[in-house]
Nucleic acid binder design. Structure first.
Lengths: 230, 230
DNA sequence: TATATTGAGCTGTGATCACAGATGTCAATC
DNA sequence: GATTGACATCTGTGATCACAGCTCAATATA
């Protein structure tokens, strides 16, 4: 037994593969990749300063999760959702994210709650600056802090998968939202605040209800923008 | 416009990557890969008669879904679930598969119901022959026929992900079940029959209830076997 | 006999190359 | 002027190779 005994959870070396995956995931969740955007393995590899190998594995993973789509000899594209998949995903997000909020309210420590409150404030600041990616990033940080407090790694993973498909579908609408409708989303901040309050007060039922009605309202807004755009 | 106009949903060429992925997925869902089994990229490539390339992408995908785990310089292993992940996954399976059964009851056509009934009978035959992989395969065919009837592709995908992690966790218990406890699982067939009946009769609430109580009973059986084994 | 050490043989990771297929441009044709 | 055809270019896929790091068993050491 020559291995240093305390290296137990031996941190796996950070592979370029993982790096590329994390980068693409972040790009999807922050709205930097939008439906229709076509990218290329070689271009991505150049940007990362690596060969195509790590990138193609990362893309392959995301394609398996339907977060990206590989067009045989044309490139890689961010897929848009057809009506049916969109409905499915909204329904599942409402169910899973609602439940995660309820769990978070039951389990969050005071420190968790404080951290969550801080992140909620950051979202508001980013929106005030009409910074699209800033809003989406801050919002993700806020939401995932809540879901992390729910202390259910598998649920967290499913939510991530769903959001990677859902966010690009919503990006255009969010851009409009923060650019043109400040009064509209003002009441979304009230929901954020209410959620933070419910979690702090350990009111699981209220937390679920707030998150679910917020998501439904957001879904309706996105749908209204999209049907108008067509 | 020289392309034949009717090739619209141009069927993507079947890549070796996809083939390897499908093979591994099937191996996991049918209990041919059990927790602790260590495999190797090179061995898998040999078995498939290809290079390592397609296999490693397939493994990479499954590792992203936590269905496999890559041990840095030792090989690839089927991970077993710790208590917390196991609880999470049971909870989510109960929730999602229950809901899928309810949807299936609402939407299944008569033809769907008939097909489902046939597949349920096949499970029983496989169990009578104490054929472990046969049981798991027939069971998957039956269950997924139900979930397919639910007509929610995204839900189906999430259920698949969860089952790829759950099935290996249960395989040992199922082996014991079909080998030593025929009277025990006899009442599981009653549940299958009841589920088929509920779907045929379009009783969504009953379908959900039956599936959920069946899953809970199965979970408890698996847990009892596992704690006994320790 | 128990412990330490070496080294050969693995492992997955990443780079590079070859290739079939699709695309889009541009000239030849009617 | 509109259509067709061919060719150069670019795509992802798969094979092959080099390599650093770990494992594990045989060996040396006390």
């Amino acid at each position: 037994m020559s291995r240093p005994a305390l290296a137990l959870p031996r941190l796996a070396r950070v592979t370029l593969n993982e790096l590329a995956y994390a980068g693409l995931k972040q790009a999807l969740l922050s709205g930097r990749l939008e439906p229709g955007n076509v990218i290329t393995l070689r271009r991505l590899a150049d940007e990362l300063g690596t060969s195509m190998m790590p990138v193609r594995e990362a893309v392959s993973r995301l394609a398996a999760e339907h977060a990206l789509e590989v067009l045989p000899n044309r490139g890689i594209v961010v897929p848009d959702l057809d009506r049916r998949d969109a409905e499915d995903i909204w329904e599942l997000r409402i169910r899973l994210e609602g439940e995660a909020c309820a769990r978070a309210a039951r389990r969050a420590s005071a420190a968790d709650a404080a951290r969550i409150a801080k992140l909620a404030a950051a979202v508001e600041r980013a929106a005030a600056a009409t910074d699209l990616h800033g809003v989406l990033e801050a919002n993700n940080a806020f939401q995932f802090a809540v879901y992390q407090a729910a202390d259910s790694p598998v649920t967290l993973q499913l939510i991530e998968t769903l959001r990677m498909r859902s966010v690009p579908h919503c990006t255009a609408a969010v851009r409009l939202l923060i650019a043109e409708r400040p009064p509209y989303y003002a009441h979304s901040w009230q929901n954020h605040a209410a959620l933070v309050a419910a979690i702090t007060a350990r009111e699981a039922v209220a937390a679920r209800r707030i998150k679910q009605s917020d998501l439904r309202a957001f879904r309706d807004y996105v749908n209204s923008i999209r049907t108008r755009a067509v």
